[in-house]
């Protein structure tokens, strides 16, 4: 892990839809190997920003580099170096666990042998070995999320973007999911995660809080709690969201 290298650099990112600023002059950097929490209420502009960083959407203005590639011109290079898991479920429900792994591994260009090894390793880690031939629609949501995350990093990207990855599951299941995140971070993958669960915010190295398209706070969870004289992240978030209203 090298905390001194900037893996994401954002300067003055703005995205306008008509007259509406979904993102208004965002500035931040993410260090390599960091777990970076991107917090905000629904509609604060988190998804818009994450889509821009992934090369799915073009910014209106700003200087943005992801894995040292420019988001205007080098989106295809960026895509080779990132993984992405969205709130909208991205596995194929009518394919089996194994077929989903094979498909995504295949289109990321993994060699057949590597893909086979990876598949077995992954199924073992997720304890899904006996479920490999089950269709995705037949397995519980928590497992789907863990599988989707593992598939998102199957090509060993430098960064993985998680857009509300744990929606709709209980705190225990979320905790299991976060074990996978820590493991990936240990291996040096930078984690960029949006969430509106405050227990998840506590797990991050650093957290930015977005309200109405703007980043209004950025620090470690402890730093934020100190600054806003709060017991936990929930209080921090409520204070900030309230002052903006």
């Amino acid at each position: 892990m090298n905390q001194s290298i900037n893996i994401i650099e954002v300067e003055g990112l703005s995205k306008k839809f008509g007259d509406f600023y979904a993102n208004d002059n965002l500035n931040f950097v993410v260090k390599q190997g960091e777990i970076f929490g991107f917090l905000g209420a629904n509609g604060a502009g988190k998804t818009t920003a994450i889509r821009i960083l992934c090369g799915l959407s073009k910014p209106t203005s700003g200087k943005i580099k992801v894995a040292n590639f420019d988001v205007y011109k080098q989106t295809e290079e960026i895509k080779k170096n990132i993984g992405y898991m969205s709130q909208k479920f991205s596995l194929y429900e009518d394919l089996t666990v194994e077929e989903n792994i094979e498909f995504y591994g295949g289109i990321y260009g993994l060699k057949r042998k590597v893909l086979k090894e990876k598949t077995n390793e992954l199924l073992k880690k997720l304890k899904l070995e006996d479920k490999r031939a089950k269709l995705i629609k037949e397995i519980p949501l928590g497992w789907k999320q863990r599988l989707a995350f593992s598939i998102a990093i199957i090509h060993e990207p430098k960064i993985v973007f998680l857009d509300e990855p744990t929606g709709g599951v209980d705190p225990v299941t979320r905790r299991h999911f976060w074990d996978l995140i820590y493991e990936a971070a240990q291996e040096g993958i930078t984690i960029f995660v949006t969430t509106h669960y405050m227990d998840e915010a506590e797990y991050c190295d650093r957290v930015s809080i977005m309200v109405a398209g703007k980043i209004i706070a950025l620090d470690t969870p402890d730093g934020l709690k100190k600054t806003y004289k709060s017991q936990n992240m929930n209080e921090v978030f409520l204070q900030l969201a309230r002052t903006e209203e």
Binding site: K79, Y84, S86, F89, S90, Y92, I107
Partner: peptide, 13 residues
């Protein structure tokens, strides 16, 4: 409709 196209679009395909 299913949203899987997003996942495809984020790959270098």
């Amino acid at each position: 409709e299913l949203g899987t196209i997003e996942q495809i679009n984020v790959t270098p395909i």
